[in-house]
Structures are given as structure tokens and as C-alpha cells.
Write a protein that binds this DNA or RNA. Structure first.
Lengths: 156, 156
DNA sequence: CAGTATCCCAAGCGATACTG
DNA sequence: CAGTATCGCTTGGGATACTG
């Protein structure tokens, strides 16, 4: 099929890429998906400067991916933690697809760093392409993309 | 569970994030997944400067995601096109997960920009989390992550 | 068509120090 | 603990012009 230019401002991939942000944001998200939720802990783990971390957290909050919660351990001073919103949680397939790609192609070791499991049965979870007819598609070549109904790029 | 710091240099998400690169690289990949393969076409579609596009293409080739092919339409002068390697094609789930996230949360219109279909049956394809027991998991909260066997961060 | 070379500017970064 | 403020410095970017 022939492709007219997709409107960048309306393209889902573009927009998601903007929300994900840069490398630092992705690392922040990894930490939070892993349950690391406090400023200094995140900073220690990923080794980013404080100002950049603050900016990334704010950015992720602005996009509705994270929200900040204050909590108080009894007799302790208040703490803050960053948690995923529902929108943030729905980035899980993106993160996991990245994980699986990295484990397949990029890591030197055989074992994955992180394994995702199903709470209900404990079995390992993978991201899978499935069509509406129920076929599982392992080979990307068995897919094709067509334009949907969204507006195209206006200009020439 | 308690999390020890994952070694950033061994983390699959980190490494994939590096390969994906920045916004421009992702847009380049979108174009190439959409079958737009020539330098000037890509440049026209995504509106990046020539030097940056050249650098991103080189980078994606260095990472083994793309390769460059010369071809010759009969009686025409040689042309070049960028194609996905097998490694590049296996980024498809990542791209599609991004697309689905964007379509759900970020686009203003109801219709998706791009629809992915199964060649064999034409049915629409979605990325799905499936566990080894065959359960389909729609809700990210029904998942949990544990450390795999990969090495942890060495320092402090 | 498919790039490379140059230039100049702006944004981004880490380091450091400071605040509630 | 959880940030903000300030500061140089480097990197990266678009624009433009040039080459095979």
C-alpha cells in the first residue's frame, strides 16, 4: 500500500514517544514499575542528577502518568511517593515489550533481569500479538499495517 | 518484594531505550514500519533536518535495526532504501504497544491512525499479555514483577 | 536523490550549594 | 528526605550550502 504522510501531531506513536520522554523518564518508569517510589531511592538507582529527576517526575505527572502521594509512617515525618495512575499502568505493555526485546537481542547474559508473572497462577507472562480471530502471530512479517480513519497530514 | 537496584548497563529496558534512541529515531522507525524507506521521503514526512536524519539512520544501522540496500529501477539511476533487519522487525510489539497506548490515551480523535492486521485472515491485531497457562491478562494490576537471574548492580 | 560540511544558537546537563 | 537555585559547559539542533 502507498503511504500518505501521517500527521505527526495526531500519530499515536509520536504522542506516546513524547509522553515516554527520554532515557531518564524511561528509567524512572522502570523503577516505579518495580515498586521504587521515593525520590532519593530513584535517584540512587538510576544515577541521574537531582534537578533532572525532579523535572522528569514533574513531566510524568503533567502527562498524567504519575501522581504524588504523601504518607506518614506513625511517629515519623511525612514521606512522599510517586505512584502510577491508571494511565501510567497502561504503559505496562510498552515497558514489557521493551524488556522482551532487550532480553532477546541486547543483554549479554542468558537470564532476564526481571520476570513478569500472573498474580492468579504465577505463570510467566509475555506480550503476544493476537488477532481478533484468535490467531497468535509470532512473526512480524505476518502483519500488515493500513491507515485508519484518523486525519492525515494536512500540508503538501 | 524488595528491590535491589537493577544494573542499568544490564537492564533490558535501559538497553532497548538506548537502541530506540530519541523521538526522531522512533519517528524514523514508524516511517519504515509503514513502508517509507527512502531518505528524502522520510525527511519530508517527519520534518527533521537532513543532518539529524542521516545521523539517526546511521545509528539505527549501527545497532543492527536497519540495513541499507541499493536497488536500481531499470534505466533509472540507483536508489537506496532502508529496511528493517530481523532485529528491527522484532521491535514491532514495542511500536504497536506504543500505538495502542497513544490511541487509547493521547489522540483527540476516535479513529486510530494506523491499524495492524493479520495477513492470513485480515483480522485486527492487538498486543496482549498472555501467561504460560494461557490466561489473557487485561489489567496490569494482575501482574507482578520479580527479579530474574541477571546480575544486579555491583556498587554500594 | 542522498547525503556531508559548516555555523551558530539554544537547550540540557551535572555539580554544587542551599531550603523546608 | 525531597526538593529548588544557580552556573558554566557541552551537546545537539536547524538552516544553509555544497557534492557525487
Amino acid at each position: 500500500m502507498e503511504w500518505t504522510a501521517v500527521d505527526n501531531d495526531a500519530c499515536a506513536v509520536t504522542l506516546t514517544s513524547d509522553v515516554l520522554g527520554d532515557r531518564w523518564s524511561v528509567l524512572v518508569l522502570r523503577e516505579i514499575f518495580n515498586g521504587v517510589r521515593r525520590f532519593d531511592d530513584i535517584q540512587g538507582h538510576i544515577g541521574v542528577s537531582r534537578s533532572v529527576l525532579a523535572q522528569r517526575l514533574r513531566r510524568l505527572m503533567d502527562h498524567g502518568i504519575l501522581h504524588k502521594r504523601e504518607y506518614q509512617a506513625p511517629g515519623d515525618r511525612p514521606r512522599y511517593e510517586y505512584r502510577l495512575t491508571e494511565m501510567g499502568r497502561s504503559l505496562q505493555p510498552v515497558m514489557q515489550a521493551m524488556m522482551e526485546f532487550g532480553d532477546r537481542w541486547l543483554t549479554s547474559h542468558d537470564d532476564p533481569t526481571v520476570i513478569v508473572r500472573h498474580k492468579e497462577c504465577g505463570a510467566r507472562v509475555k506480550v503476544t500479538s493476537v488477532c481478533a480471530e484468535g490467531h497468535v502471530i509470532d512473526e512480524p512479517r505476518d502483519l500488515y499495517a493500513v491507515l485508519g480513519g484518523a486525519p492525515l497530514k494536512s500540508a503538501s
